[in-house]
Design a protein around this nucleic acid. Sequence first.
DNA 1: TTCGAGTTTTTGGTCGGACCAATTTGGTCC
DNA 2: GGACCAAATTGGTCCGACCAAAAACTCGAA
Lengths: 249, 249
Amino acid sequence: MQGRPPSVTDRISSELRDEILRGRYQAGDRLPSERELAERFDTHRGAVREALKKLEQLGIAEIRRGGARAAPIEEASLDIVRHLMELDNPPDPHLFDQIFEVFGGLFSHAARLAAERADDEQRARVAAILAQLTHDDLPVLEEHERIQELSELFVEASQNMIFALVRRGLHTEFIERIENHKTLLRPPDAERAPLLGAIAKAMAERDGPAAANAVYDLTRAVRIQAVAILEAERDRRREEDRVEGARRR
Amino acid sequence: MQGRPPSVTDRISSELRDEILRGRYQAGDRLPSERELAERFDTHRGAVREALKKLEQLGIAEIRRGGARAAPIEEASLDIVRHLMELDNPPDPHLFDQIFEVFGGLFSHAARLAAERADDEQRARVAAILAQLTHDDLPVLEEHERIQELSELFVEASQNMIFALVRRGLHTEFIERIENHKTLLRPPDAERAPLLGAIAKAMAERDGPAAANAVYDLTRAVRIQAVAILEAERDRRREEDRVEGARRR
DNA sequence: TTCGAGTTTTTGGTCGGACCAATTTGGTCC
DNA sequence: GGACCAAATTGGTCCGACCAAAAACTCGAA
């Protein structure tokens, strides 16, 4: 969050946002009035108004005199994605899959531009990182650091500020919020050599399309493995809940 | 905006946001206090607080007791991009270039997924649209509609909800806000047949990488032409301003 | 039974003021 | 220059008032 203790405004806005994202209010449904919410949260209208303004800015609430309403999630701002991810821990595997697929596309595109634009020093650093990553005996946390470095290098070499913004946003607000993301987001061992080799080759040959395809293939393999892990985890928790529920009955 | 007349809160938040984005406050600089802003805007602290909460959510202000400060733009949320675009009209060609380059990457990626996942009916519609676009005698507004339709179709066929969110966000909050965007964002006449033909071929062959590359090439050509137009327009206006300035002196 | 007009109620928008805890600022002293 | 302290300023929270816009309700006519 914002690096300060959550205020009353934060609390109200988070709770209402989660209710909207969980479907408690469908698009067009009236939201509780400011006065009702002030009573429910035992606070003043000012804090409620601030909270609702935040939801409006996220694009999930439409505020009008006569009553505020929920807005369609599909018309929300991109910032809503992180809040969707935060609804559950671990996140919903399907949602994770969709988000990571888009992220992979961006990363792939950054790689294409990097292959075409990187200077000699950047190219050397990419080659060094890829060589290190090819060793599958690298400790997991160190491997993760190298992957981050590679991602940052591609973005830097792409010379596109928007990519930097997008990468930072997706990384800080999305990836870092996933439990065990450092062990989750890894190239499958069996595929790492060919995948990384293809990237190295494309970079050496300054072949944008090949770099894009190779990085797409890498992120796709990482994503498929991660989704399988998340699904297994979800199934395990469901089984625990089922057993726990049977025990309580 | 939100489809209601701008409130005092909106006015304050917009004005402060533009000041921050224009560099009036560097990262770490103190922002005016709530009471100072209430006086400056001749309003109450409540509206100022609501406005500042919006800036905090955008990631460009850090609010703490003791004084609020500007935050680094590069750490802002993605929503800030549209506000950067809105600073000038026409937008800064370099900024437009960067944003559109990223957009092209996303569109390219959606095309890759669409090539692999589209059903027969979607494929037929893509082929029909591409055939229509190949005729360079299509009226500009109708051509624009076909391009929109193509974009929507790729997103639909990609079966990725996040793409839908991203496309809507980028389109509504970015492209549609560019003056004359319907005439600005067009494939160059001389290149349209080969570019569109490559997309059609990739779709027919269900070749994801080829579709990605072909769509990337198309968006790149559109972007280069649009940037040239924006730069010419900017130069023309600067010349006008120079002449106007000389006239005043 | 439906519809339109009028009335009433509820809604969000705006405002002023109060109070409190946290932070900053300025003064003093060493 | 650093420590300490009091004063000032800051954001956070709260209350209540008032107003215009919208929704809900009522009633009579068709």
